[in-house]
């Protein structure tokens, strides 16, 4: 029977301190939200053997296995090992469960594994980010979404990575059916017009949704093989000043995003409030305190932005009160 429990260690180990004393719940990380029968079976087995049979599907695409006795935590850590191995989650010690919980599961929409609208494989990119940043105690939320529909709601994250299609036009294949013009107008931003029976694209207006490519029956419009993204930053939910993320970089690429995220961890480690409750401070609030310019200086260190990348010089967030 457990009497003394270090709650800090319990939480760091991805177990929750619940409202029911001595009962805990395990948070299972599933980067990009893609599981398979082994993951589901293992989670189900743990819920049956150690939990009260209930499994919560979390908003960050993990599982939370409810009603576990704290006494069983070591055995649960052993039992979850096949999932950790199978999803190749970074771990410090085998059979010791998750080494951290501050940096949250990297979430992704269904992505181009099957979604016709998505511009990239969100799960693969999520996994690359997870590999780089986990384990870490810093409280960072990252979400990846395949297109500007933003089904994962990346605009409510510290980093929202939104797939962009760079449309390229082969005039010699265009038959002026105007499917692209009509779809861009009705589904998207109306960045296309027709002039002398050929299409004119307004690059400033274009949000890279890819509707022109998706709807071109001649494939006169195709997307560039190089993948581009929009990076929106410092969106958040919560009691203090919730807000929608804002675009910082448009037409940015994967290597630049990876470097910016890595840099942000260094910035956060430098500037996090040592007095913050539980040592936990959301990076958005740190940026509020240091100012955007200081964040930008750190985040862009040694980053090579693609030539066509558009940078918003100073990001201003919409501070209208929600509460």
């Amino acid at each position: 029977m457990l009497r003394d429990v270090n709650t800090r260690k319990v939480m760091k180990n991805a177990f929750r301190i619940t409202k029911h004393k001595y009962k805990t719940a395990l948070r299972v990380r599933v980067p990009g939200g893609l599981g398979d029968p082994l993951v589901f079976r293992t989670v189900a087995d743990i819920a049956e053997k150690f939990g009260d049979g209930r499994i919560h599907i979390t908003t960050r695409q993990g599982f939370e296995i409810l009603g576990i006795d704290m006494e069983d935590m070591p055995e649960v850590n052993e039992a979850i090992q096949p999932v950790i191995d199978h999803l190749d989650t970074n771990q410090e010690k085998r059979k010791a469960g998750y080494p951290a919980s501050g940096t949250r599961n990297v979430a992704g929409c269904i992505g181009n594994k099957i979604c016709p609208k998505a511009q990239y494989n969100t799960t693969e990119f999520a996994k690359e980010i997870e590999d780089m940043i986990f384990p870490n105690d810093l409280h960072v939320k990252i979400a990846l979404t395949g297109c500007p529909n933003d089904c994962i709601k990346s605009v409510m994250h510290d980093f929202g990575i939104i797939g962009m299609c760079l449309p390229e036009y082969d005039q010699s294949r265009c038959v002026a059916c105007q499917a692209c013009v009509n779809k861009c107008k009705s589904y998207s931003v109306g960045a296309l017009s027709i002039e002398n029976n050929k299409i004119v694209r307004n690059h400033e207006k274009c949000i890279g949704c890819g509707e022109c490519v998706l709807n071109c029956p001649m494939l006169a419009w195709t997307r560039s093989p190089k993948k581009y993204f929009r990076l929106v930053i410092m969106g958040r939910t919560g009691k203090k000043n919730p807000r929608i993320a804002k675009t910082w970089l448009k037409w940015v690429d994967k290597p630049a995003i990876m470097k910016i995220i890595a840099n942000t961890y260094e910035y956060t480690a430098e500037y996090i409030d040592p007095e913050a409750p539980n040592g936990k401070e959301h990076i958005g609030y740190i940026v509020d305190r240091t100012g955007f310019e200081e964040f930008k200086k750190w985040a862009l260190k040694d980053v090579e932005l693609p030539e066509r990348c558009e940078v918003v010089p100073t990001v201003y967030w919409d501070e209208r009160k929600i509460w």
Partner: peptide
Amino acid sequence: RHPYRGTHSDTDKIQ
């Protein structure tokens, strides 16, 4: 075959 030039991302076009 034009890799990555299909209707959907990561699909090809053959013309």
